[in-house]
Amino acid sequence: MSKDNAVTVKNVYKNYGETEALSDMSLDFPRGELTSLLGPSGCGKTTLLKIIAGLLPATSGEVIVNGQIVKEPGPDRAFVFQDFALLPWASVIRNVAFGLELRGVVKSERESIAQKYIGDVGLKGFENSFPHELSGGMRQRVGLARALSVDAQVLLMDEPFSAVDEQTRRKFQEDLLNLVKNENKTFIFVTHSIEEAVYVSDQIALLLPRPSRVSEIIRPTSFKNKDVDSIRRDSEYLDIVDRIWKSLRTYVK
């Protein structure tokens, strides 16, 4: 093993009764990098993410995070939800601090931590707003700030941008690239958008359904150090997008 992996998935199976959702899945997630799980619906990408999170038990096989076998959710992982999962009755600051609240951090301390991350995600001034007063994009920023504030080493993101509009989404993707660069965290990112996966990832795991398996692992190289504006014009970027679409198209009905 040449690289240091923050998360390792080893021979994981997941069955729901008769149906096999995941079958002999093995995958490494290098530390400090962003890995996308990309594939058509039904390929088990969210199932895999939830198994890594400890929200779902695997039928067999194991997930190792920092040398520890995952049995349940733990402080080393934080989850960002597709539908944000904010508490509608709590203000932004309480939502952001909620992970810390559940861990028993005292109020003044958790609020000052939350305050910092609210600023980081660009929501300064909205501390006392409520989720229903925010736009979808701002809500997901709250969800992101909540995940960052518990300072987990691994961030699990389940299609975090699919419920926001296209322009907000692009801004998010740029912000995410900076986040990966600046925070020394490992990101696992589930998406069904090919362009998004290629744009944000250090490594793309292409999953295919029936039976669910890792069909390919792609590591973009040439555009990784370019600035955000030129990525989408890079020829390697375009080639990878094309290549992925060609292997996926037969699975799309």
């Binding site: 400890g54 959710p73 934080a78 989850f79 939800f81 539908d83 909620f98 992970g99 559940l102």
Partner: peptide
Amino acid sequence: INRSLVDMARSFGAK
């Protein structure tokens, strides 16, 4: 209750 609120509580280790 929104399924992901339940997951959220669990993922932060709520008692």
